[in-house]
Simulated assay, not measured.
Amino acid sequence: MAKKGSGGWVESGKTILYAALIAVGIRTVAFEPFNIPSGSMIPTLLVGDYLFVSKFSYGYSRHSLPFSPNLFSGRIFGRLPDRGDVAVFKLPSDNSTDYIKRIVGLPGDRIQMRGGILYVNGAAVQRALVGPFVVEGDGPRMTVREYRETLPPSSGMAQGRSHSILEASDDGPFDNTQEFRVPEGHVFAMGDNRDNSLDSRAMNHVGFVPLENLVGRAEFIFFSVDGSAAWWEVWAWPFAIRWNRLFSGVR
Rank of each mutant, 00 (worst) to 15 (best):
Leu65Gly: 14
Met142Val: 11
Ile103Gly: 05
His163Thr: 04
Leu166Cys: 07
Pro153Phe: 06
Ser154Ile: 09
Pro92Lys: 11
Pro152Trp: 09
Arg110Thr: 14
Ser155Asn: 09
Met142His: 10
Val120Phe: 08
Gly160Asn: 15
Pro140Val: 02
Ser68Phe: 12
Val125Asp: 14
Ala124Leu: 14
Ser154Gln: 07
Val144Ser: 01
Lys90Met: 13
Val86Gly: 02
Pro140Glu: 03
Glu136Gln: 12
Gly84Asn: 05
Met157Ser: 15
Ile117Pro: 04
Pro152Lys: 09
Pro107Ser: 10
Gly185His: 01
Ala158Lys: 15
Val182Pro: 01
Ser64Ala: 03
Gly172Asn: 02
Asp175Met: 01
Pro173Met: 00
Asp94Asn: 14
Lys90Ile: 06
Ala123Met: 10
Val104Ile: 12
Thr150Arg: 09
Gly160Arg: 15
Val130Ser: 13
Leu166Glu: 08
Pro81Gly: 04
Thr177Arg: 12
Leu129Arg: 15
Gly105Cys: 11
His163Asn: 01
Asn176Trp: 01
Val134Leu: 09
Ala123Thr: 13
Gly156Phe: 12
Arg145Val: 06
Leu91Cys: 11
Val144Trp: 03
Arg161Ala: 15
Phe77Ala: 12
Ile111Cys: 03
Thr177Glu: 11
Ser154Met: 09
Phe72His: 09
Val135His: 05
Arg127Gln: 15
Pro173His: 00
Asp94His: 06
Arg114Ile: 14
Ile117Thr: 15
Leu106Arg: 03
Glu184Asn: 06
Ala124Glu: 15
Gly78Pro: 04
Ile100Leu: 05
Glu146Thr: 05
Lys101Leu: 13
Ile111Gln: 01
Pro183Glu: 08
Ile165Asn: 12
Pro153Met: 05
Gly108Leu: 00
Ile117Glu: 13
Leu80Lys: 05
Asp94Arg: 04
Leu65Val: 10
Arg161Met: 15
Leu91Asn: 12
Asn176Cys: 02
Leu106Ala: 06
Asp138Ser: 05
Arg83Ala: 14
Thr177Gly: 11
Arg110Leu: 11
Ser64Arg: 02
Val88Thr: 06
Pro66Met: 00
Ala168Thr: 05
Val120Lys: 07
Arg181Asp: 08
Leu106Pro: 07
Gly105Pro: 06
Gly122Pro: 07
Arg75Glu: 10
Ser64Asp: 05
Met157His: 15
Asp82Met: 05
Gln159His: 10
Ile76Tyr: 10
Leu71Asn: 07
Ala123Cys: 09
Pro153His: 04
Tyr99Glu: 05
Pro173Tyr: 00
Ser93Cys: 08
Phe67Met: 12
Tyr147Ser: 02
Arg161His: 15
Arg114Tyr: 07
Asn70Ile: 05
Leu80Gly: 11
Val144Pro: 02
Asn176Ile: 00
Lys101Tyr: 11
Tyr119Lys: 00
Val144Glu: 06
Val86Trp: 02
Pro132Tyr: 08
Val88Cys: 08
Arg114Glu: 13
Asp109His: 07
Val182Asp: 03
Arg148Trp: 01
Phe174His: 06
Asp170Glu: 14
Phe67Ser: 12
Pro107Gln: 09
Val125Met: 11
Val86Ala: 02
Ser73Asn: 15
Val135Ile: 12
Asp138Lys: 00
Gly139Leu: 00
Leu80Pro: 09
Val86Asn: 02
Glu184Tyr: 03
Pro132Ser: 11
Glu146His: 03
Asp170Thr: 15
Ser64Ile: 04
